[in-house]
């Protein structure tokens, strides 16, 4: 699947049509946003199946709330905020009811292919195990600011904190990772 350049997502005509309920425009926006959503959810949740569920839930909420989008921020920022809220809810649910969530995820999904298992294993060993070393707020700040390359203001808007707090949190996360890699013991 070829990724679609995200620059077109800022086309106000497409956004207007999608807000008016035109399915073609909604599909275009969804295709442009699915990879940023998936990357963000995968980094936050650490599991491909859970991330895929989170992406679908995020997309449904995006379509539902799209008419309320006023354009005060960029569409990508607004859409990532929806995904971030879904990830927070899933993590909260995982911490409260782990057994129910395990059953829920085991039942509806077919067995992953060997390639998918290999990709998932690689992601868990390199990226997600790295992010597991961080506190949730540090992980959010690092994903949005460093990996997703949002601006400090956009990251602060999504994390509902001051821009200075974002800078400090990202610096703490990077120091923590450097410390872990320099001294694995």
């Amino acid at each position: 699947m070829n990724p679609i350049p995200f620059a077109n997502a800022h086309d106000p005509r497409v956004i207007k049509k999608a807000q008016a309920g035109q399915r073609k425009a909604q599909a275009e926006l969804i295709r442009q946003l699915q990879d940023p959503w998936y990357r963000c959810c995968l980094a936050m949740l650490g599991d491909t199946h859970t991330a895929a569920d989170a992406v679908q839930e995020t997309a449904m909420r995006f379509i539902q709330h799209l008419p309320a989008f006023r354009g005060d921020s960029q569409l990508k920022t607004w859409a990532l905020g929806i995904g971030l809220n879904v990830c927070r809810e899933l993590r909260r649910a995982q911490s409260n009811q782990p057994a129910a969530l395990i059953d829920q995820h085991d039942t509806p999904h077919p067995a992953p292919s060997p390639d998918a298992r290999a990709i998932a294993g690689e992601q868990r060993t390199q990226l997600n195990l790295l992010l597991d070393q961080l506190a949730p707020r540090q992980r959010e700040a690092l994903v949005l600011r460093y990996f997703e390359q949002l601006s400090v203001d956009q990251t602060a808007q999504l994390m509902d904190c001051a821009p200075g707090t974002v800078k400090a949190t990202v610096a703490q996360a990077l120091d923590r990772l450097r410390q872990l890699w320099s001294d694995p013991s």
């Binding site: 998936y38 992406v55 379509i63």
Partner: peptide, 23 residues
């Protein structure tokens, strides 16, 4: 850290989400 960022940006959703939502 740079390798982790490249890996992050190379991750793609494995399906067509618009198709899955029936759009």
């Amino acid at each position: 850290l740079e390798a982790a960022r490249r890996e992050y940006q190379n991750a793609h959703y494995p399906h067509d989400l618009a198709d899955q939502l029936g759009l």
